[in-house]
Design a protein around this nucleic acid. Structure first.
Lengths: 302, 302
DNA sequence: GCGCTTTACGCTGCGCGTAAGTATC
DNA sequence: GATACTTACGCGCAGCGTAAAGCGC
């Protein structure tokens, strides 16, 4: 009794009758038989504990209480409608936002093309991209600031609260000057790289971690540890050493240096999709996630 | 499908589950068995076309769409609640307004005491009083500016769109100076008044109309036609004539003039309650209407 | 094994439409 | 008698509770 139930059907019936002031017509509007409609109004009146309409034979009119309720009823229906509309427009991908975190190499590599396709298909969806190193990407997912991440989880990271899915892999490539002896090698192996001055990425980069894991326990002749691939390129170009980088980053190395694929299955960097385990993705995020899987799933880039 | 039905039960179930994140507990909150509650949520999700909760075994959480809907759901419930509360407070006379039109004689006579009683019983109800002549009172009712009127409908007035109910009657009283010959009359009759200089109210006053109707075709010796009873009193007091006024207006004549009842059943003014025929009264107006009938119904004032 | 949700399954009763009733013009 | 709302009545199905079955931990 304290909180009578109220349904949108009742509210619609009420406003229809308030509009038309005729049970028969309002019943048709609500796709009900007239007696059923009558009962619906009667139920509403009884639930509210107030007579809402005067049925003075020949004319139906709102009572003062009915007029009082009318405004509220219309407002409720409108709010209900816009809430449903908003939800529907998100479900139907007319509206929404996806926040994604990705490694800089992916963010600069194939991701833009997928974004473009997605944005063309769903122009109402706003995409937000954080390009960050793997750990930062995963932290963004964990904190809920990103819906999912494209990253290369390090070996030691705790991922029990996350769902990770292998998406695709990057082959690694040798980078050196055109005249370097390794360019002519027919069968490049890790061991053959070990002697040469080697330019590394910093230890927290996914490139470095993948490389360390793949070459372990081989020791390289590290001469530099730098943050940016552009720096690697500059150092190689200056003849100060060689390096090994994932296929996805090769766009940094077009021009004065040469690159050679290292055809080693063990020497691959696996890109993972990372999301929170308990929480599902929004419809929009699912759609982008799906498109990414569709376009890049199980690819190996060389 | 275009406009899914939404009930307050569903919204309450939704918010309960969003709050408690546990089907079993939320079901208890809603006084439902757990399976029934589960089905209720499932129905809602299906109606909205979106999954609202992640049931990831061990933990229930809102999906992104669920979070989107949560705000709207809570707002809807709150608005619904306040609409119901407002309606209830009107029905239960904690809130409201009654606009009443009444003849000045009633407005100054017994009406204030009834108002005082009503306002004491229902302090939340605002009373609005228009004191006006009968025709104006009736016009206010007809235009909806007054809920009902206390008036003395003239003989010729068209009242087919109004519901009138006789409330009570006023006897008429002679008003003259203390030493006047009529004061000693044992049996006052209209004919005995005819010779004396007579002070009339204007023709559109209900006093005058009742008097004219009752005395017809007797011709009085009219020496003044005035608007206000206070003027009548002044003129009588100055010895310029006699007058006849309803019992309700006698409070104007205490002091230097004397009054004598005219014991003629035909010489009565019937006070009517007037309201619109098609439209019912608000609960508050009904309450005041009822109190007025209770206190004054079928009284004859002498 | 325990806690929690879902599935299965009768059963009650709400709410529907048809048809008859009633009242006003 | 025409119109419009209410009452009567039988019926189907939505929605309930009980009981049993998944499913992680």
């Amino acid at each position: 009794m304290r909180t009578p139930d109220l349904s949108s059907r009742q509210l619609r019936a009420f406003t229809a009758l308030a509009d038309q002031r005729n049970f028969t017509h309002a019943a048709q509007t609500c796709h009900l038989s007239q007696p059923a409609f009558s009962a619906l109004i009667a139920t509403l009146e009884s639930a509210l504990g107030a007579r809402l309409f005067d049925r003075d034979k020949r004319s139906v009119q709102l009572t003062p209480e009915g007029r009082l309720f009318e405004g509220a009823a219309r407002r409720l229906l409108e709010d209900m409608g816009s809430a449903l509309e908003s939800l529907a427009s998100h479900v139907e991908l007319r509206q929404g936002r996806v926040r994604i975190a990705a490694l800089p190499s992916l963010a600069a590599g194939w991701l833009p093309a997928v974004f473009a396709e997605f944005m063309h298909a769903w122009p109402g969806i706003t995409l937000e991209l954080h390009d960050a190193l793997s750990d930062a990407c995963i932290a963004l997912v964990r904190s809920g600031q990103a819906d999912f991440a494209l990253a290369v989880p390090g070996a030691g990271a705790a991922l029990s609260d996350l769902r990770t899915r292998r998406l695709c892999a990057d082959g690694f490539h040798l980078v050196c000057l055109p005249g370097h002896p390794l360019v002519g090698e027919t069968r490049l192996t890790p061991a053959k790289l070990a002697h040469w001055p080697f330019i590394q990425m910093t230890r927290n980069s996914s490139v470095r971690q993948a490389l360390d894991a793949a070459l372990h326990p081989l020791r390289l002749n590290t001469v530099f540890e730098v943050e940016h691939l552009a720096t690697v390129r500059g150092l190689v170009e200056a003849g100060l050493g060689i390096s090994v980088v994932p296929a996805l980053t090769l766009f940094h190395f077009q021009g004065a240096v040469v690159t050679r694929p290292l055809p080693l299955p063990s020497l691959q960097r696996s890109v993972h999709l990372v999301q929170r385990k308990g929480a599902s993705l929004s419809v929009a995020a699912q759609a982008l996630h799906g498109l990414i899987v569709e376009r890049m799933g199980n690819r190996v880039l060389d």
